[in-house]
Design a protein around this nucleic acid. Sequence first.
DNA 1: AGGCCGACCGAGCGATCGCTCGGTCGCGAG
DNA 2: CTCGCGACCGAGCGATCGCTCGGTCGGCCT
Lengths: 218, 218
Amino acid sequence: MTVDAPDADTPEAGDTAAWDDWRTYGEPDLPRILAAALEAFVEHGYHGTSIRDIAAASGLSVPGVYHHYRSKQEILAALMSATMDELLGRSRAALASAGDDPVARFEAVVESMLRFHMARRGQAFVGSSEMRSLDPDERAAHIALRDEQQAMLRVLLEEGVAAGVFATPYPADVARAISSLCVGMASWYREDGPQSADELVVRELAMARALADSGATG
Amino acid sequence: MTVDAPDADTPEAGDTAAWDDWRTYGEPDLPRILAAALEAFVEHGYHGTSIRDIAAASGLSVPGVYHHYRSKQEILAALMSATMDELLGRSRAALASAGDDPVARFEAVVESMLRFHMARRGQAFVGSSEMRSLDPDERAAHIALRDEQQAMLRVLLEEGVAAGVFATPYPADVARAISSLCVGMASWYREDGPQSADELVVRELAMARALADSGATG
DNA sequence: AGGCCGACCGAGCGATCGCTCGGTCGCGAG
DNA sequence: CTCGCGACCGAGCGATCGCTCGGTCGGCCT
């Protein structure tokens, strides 16, 4: 069992100091097997993709794939954890670079989520649609990370409410709603769509702010 | 090939006059094969479910299933179209019962979507997650209906903007966002959750209104 | 009583599934 | 030059897949 690892110059999972350039995205540097699996999972889903599909798309034989991963399940798990690691890493980096203003902190994290779900739409889509295909252990770990991401948002909203800059009485619901917007965006966004990524970020950010101020009637 | 049809007292697809009681939901009255397929698709996905799974869960043999549906694909298609027919029917009924006020019309349709995604969460989830598993023809038909649903929302938003009661410069984006909120809700909502369905509707409706007023800076 | 038909089933078809066995090959170390 | 080892492959295992063939059975019409 060898690693088939990402290039060495890629920031490692959990390394908060990396991703300091959290707004910019290069080519996804997944190892070829994961890249092939990603494309297939996006199009046909985990159970609709065979190891032979993945092998052919990565230019390998079936045993060639099994030389790098012990099972199809391990391929999915590797893909999902790479996804969550990058999302959380970028969100933490965004938060760390945002200073003290509650609104700026909130917007930095939301922007990091928006950009991730646009630039890594395939990963983001698989990360949410194939959770049920994960083995219980990996699924629990994945859910914990996703909850951590949402908790970050919720805390930021609560701090904004405490500071008097947000009005929502239900920060947890708003955090969930913003996550839903991001997941949804990963489904419909196309790079060659009518709006630029930057403009889309502006629009969605405005919607996120509106959610943070919703329910102000009291 | 016979029908395995819903009970005769169920409103038929496309019958706008039905669903006049669009807010109330009884037990889903899917034929047993579709009910079994729904449960399996929610848990394991279309490709993760075998005909033998569906047969066993509906108390039939494999040929017994094929007596009612020509293929596994036809089972999925029947489930998806039943879903979209009910959603669109209830939304149209909500709109028809809402009077002339633009805000009331908007809120009626959003509420119909919210309640549907709560009461029929399984169908709603499969309807959005298994679109890629549909054959191209049925997929195109399904997408057309989904677009019709979103267009209804967008037109309502445009009318509200024209009437001066909504502020968003991007009604299409807001319509998409509201749909995303509904789809997301189908993923996390549980009937035995901490909030009642009615309270959740109030909260989510407030968020939808906030989205309709977002981006007012110009 | 006889015949038809809708509802269903036991057995099994060929294809494909995830995965493995027993290799080959090239490259770097000694 | 040889040896070990990581990277890979041809062939094929048993299991399961979607689907079908050739029935049985019971209720309804005449």
